[in-house]
């Protein structure tokens, strides 16, 4: 008897409320993860490596919690037969958001493992790329939250995601050109190494844009 009762929309319980809280918590974890990236890279560029390592470990914990929460939300959406019309879209959204957090964690991990030597003259570019990347993800989570509550506002946030992603691309290119034009960096391997890190960081913004593309379609579908 229970499944049918539940299928009536959980009318008599506050299960929907707790699911909302879980979703909000998930989006907060994405925000937290990317803010840790911001702080971590900032400290790395200031040569405060111990503090950076601390952030790197923290982001592991956040990513792990987000993974657990995502699986839980996915399970509940199906087992409690919620939002059948937009369930597929919501799950797609959660999965791709997970890629953003995964990439964020990997950037930190790679910095921690490979410890790239960043010459002084490109540190400012790295700092800027870091800031812009973080902004694109923070704007994305605003768009995602809007999708659940004020779908008609999604577009204005998505426009900003696209803007920051484009900025990240420009900085990445500028940085790579500077690296390969520089005489200060002698070894090709060092240049390639720096190019790799610029690319890794900018990929987080690319992932944010991928989610934004999906979200714009989901939002159109949800528009009355």
């Amino acid at each position: 008897m229970r499944p049918r009762f539940e299928a009536l929309g959980g009318i008599f319980t506050s299960r929907t409320k707790s699911l909302q809280l879980e979703m909000d918590r998930y989006f907060s974890l994405i925000d937290e993860g990317v803010l840790m990236l911001q702080e971590g890279i900032k400290r790395y560029l200031e040569d405060r490596v111990d503090e950076f390592e601390l952030k790197s470990r923290e982001i592991d914990v956040v990513e792990h919690e987000a993974d657990k929460l995502r699986r839980q939300i996915k399970h509940r959406l199906y087992s409690e037969m919620l939002i059948p019309d937009s369930r597929g879209d919501v799950l797609g959204l959660l999965e791709t958001l997970d890629n953003v957090l995964d990439d964020t964690k990997h950037v930190m991990q790679q910095f921690s493992i490979e410890k790239p030597q960043i010459p002084e003259f490109i540190r400012e570019d790295f700092r800027e790329l870091n800031e812009v990347t973080v902004k694109s993800v923070l704007e994305l989570t605003l768009a995602v939250r809007a999708f659940f509550r004020e779908v008609y506002r999604v577009t204005e946030h998505l426009d900003k995601v696209h803007f920051w992603e484009y900025e990240a691309d420009k900085i990445e290119q500028r940085l790579k050109r500077a690296v390969f034009a520089s005489e200060e960096i002698e070894l090709l391997s060092e240049r390639v190494h720096l190019r790799y890190f610029a690319g890794r960081l900018s990929r987080v913004a690319d992932q944010a844009e991928d989610v934004a593309e999906r979200l714009s379609v989901y939002a159109i579908k949800r528009h009355m």
Partner: peptide, 21 residues
């Protein structure tokens, strides 16, 4: 309906519950 929904800003999950009602 559209005006009301824009005013109240219901969460998609809650809206789903109301929609069933």
């Amino acid at each position: 309906v559209r005006t009301v929904l824009r005013r109240v800003k219901v969460h998609l999950i809650t809206l789903d519950k109301y929609t069933r009602f």
